[in-house]
């Protein structure tokens, strides 16, 4: 059972108890069977989804759709910035240019997410890793495609791929070990 179904079952149970309490007490109470402590089940619900501006870094997403991953570079200081940003705080001229990130790096560290946030609870366990892109001196964080995490090790060569994230159905980058994993 996915964590999403587990959570939805708990929510359904709480709603049943609250509806039953309304009949008995006239209020949406949840009485903890172990402690006898009473809580009020919130009768107001909000769903939050943000509208996040990507106007200034639109090129990143345009390039992603063409199979490329871009960073920005401060023209006068040479610093590469990933995630890309359009300002160079240490450069009075504040000039940037877009540069392509090479598609290979080395794994630095990783974790396997077992207990997921609610909005990821429909996914199976996933590996989040950080890879170093040596020649640009930047790190990239992404999911690592690997069926046997025991084969992961620091320094493992990985390829930076662009894949479609399902079931959300949008393009994103991932790290894929060059060795069988």
């Amino acid at each position: 059972m996915s964590q999403k179904i587990e959570f939805e079952n708990i929510l359904r149970r709480i709603e049943e108890i609250s509806e039953n309490s309304k009949k008995i007490y006239g209020a949406p109470l949840i009485i903890d069977p172990k402690t006898g402590v009473a809580t009020w089940y919130d009768q107001r619900e909000i769903k939050i989804r943000f509208l996040i501006s990507i106007e200034k870094i639109k090129r990143f997403f345009e390039a992603l759709s063409r199979g490329k991953i871009l960073a920005t570079k401060c023209v006068n200081t040479g610093e590469i910035m990933f995630p890309p940003q359009i300002n160079c705080p240490r450069d009075p001229k504040n000039q940037i240019e877009w540069v392509e990130i090479p598609n290979e790096g080395e794994l630095v560290t990783w974790t396997i997410i077992k207990v997921k946030p609610y909005s990821f609870s429909h996914h199976d366990d996933y590996i989040v890793g950080i890879a170093k892109i040596s020649n640009l001196n930047i790190n990239i964080l992404a999911w690592v495609k690997c069926k046997d995490p025991n084969k992961l090790r620091p320094g493992l060569r990985v390829r930076l791929n662009i894949v479609k994230r399902e079931p959300e159905n949008y393009l994103i980058y991932q790290l894929e070990p060059l060795e069988e994993c």
Binding site: I113, P117, H123, V128, I130, L141
Partner: peptide, 15 residues
């Protein structure tokens, strides 16, 4: 995009 959790962040340090 990557659903990091708080334990996940510290796990990256731990590994």
């Amino acid at each position: 995009n990557f659903g990091l959790t708080f334990p996940g962040y510290y796990a990256l340090y731990a590994t």
